[in-house]
């Protein structure tokens, strides 16, 4: 059984020569299936860069990255699109829903890009919206939903493709405490159902829900501990 995430010696360098900045400076990280990991660190620690690399959104200067056994660096643009669509479910701080598009259509979108059609697509999107408790808001557009509801639509969208990995980048950054609490409960529930969850955050109470906490500073992992609740 291979790990969901296997990052080996990841280096991300911006600029060159004297002006070179290392956003990642030799990072090794293994995350197995079913884990719930929080990646913590102050801004500039490289956690967002790591998240972008894990999400196949950005490439590394050096190092290797296997996602669910697939070596990402060797893939071309089209294969990357397939990987992003099928292996990863993204959740962003600013929700990143498509404007003027209903919740249902937003959730259906990644399925549509995978070529899943008609009834099956609708059923899967509806099922995902039911998991996040928004089955009565399917025809609402993002502007008609609260921040917490929008983020839950984003979670439904991420879940709809049944990805190997749920990748959340500061998912609670734009939410009030009640919505934050609801969302974290949802993450617990998703992880309990067996899905791998990785959350990037700088908030302690968000990280406290995870089973494993990875701390970063200056592009390096400084601690990797099991969270004893």
């Amino acid at each position: 059984m291979h790990p969901v995430i296997d990052v080996q010696g990841a280096v991300k360098q911006y600029g060159s020569g004297d002006a070179a900045i290392f956003a990642l400076d030799g990072v090794d990280l293994r995350i197995d299936s079913g884990e719930y990991v929080a990646i913590m660190g102050p801004s500039g620690s490289g956690k967002s860069t790591l998240m972008n690399i894990m999400g196949a959104l950005d490439n590394m200067t050096a190092g290797k990255y296997f996602l669910d056994g697939i070596e990402i660096d060797t893939l071309d643009e089209n294969a990357l699109a397939v990987v992003r669509g099928r292996k990863i479910g993204f959740i962003f701080q600013s929700f990143n829903l498509i404007a003027r598009t209903t919740a249902l259509a937003n959730v259906e979108l990644p399925l549509a890009y995978q070529g899943i059609k008609g009834k099956e697509r609708r059923a899967r999107a509806m099922a995902a919206l039911k998991v996040v408790g928004l089955e009565d808001r399917v025809s609402h557009e993002p502007t008609e939903l609260s921040g917490g509801q929008q983020q839950r639509v984003a979670v439904a969208r991420a879940l709809s493709t049944r990805p190997a990995l749920l990748l959340a980048d500061e998912p609670t950054g734009a939410l009030d405490s009640k919505s934050t609490h609801d969302l974290l409960d949802l993450f617990d529930q998703i992880n309990a159902a067996g899905r791998t969850v990785v959350v990037i955050t700088h908030e302690d109470d968000v990280a406290a829900r995870a089973k494993r906490i990875v701390r970063m500073r200056d592009g390096k992992i400084i601690s990797d501990t099991v969270n004893k609740k």
């Binding site: 999400g55 959104l57 643009e77 089209n78 699109a81 397939v82 992003r84 669509g85 099928r86 993204f90 990143n96 829903l97 498509i98 404007a99 979108l109 990644p110 890009y113 995978q114 969208r157 493709t161």
Partner: peptide, 16 residues
């Protein structure tokens, strides 16, 4: 641009 970024992040191929 942002919408294009979102679409790509959730698996939109270049062709689409």
């Amino acid at each position: 641009t942002r919408e294009i970024g979102i679409r790509k992040a959730i698996g939109a191929p270049k062709r689409a």
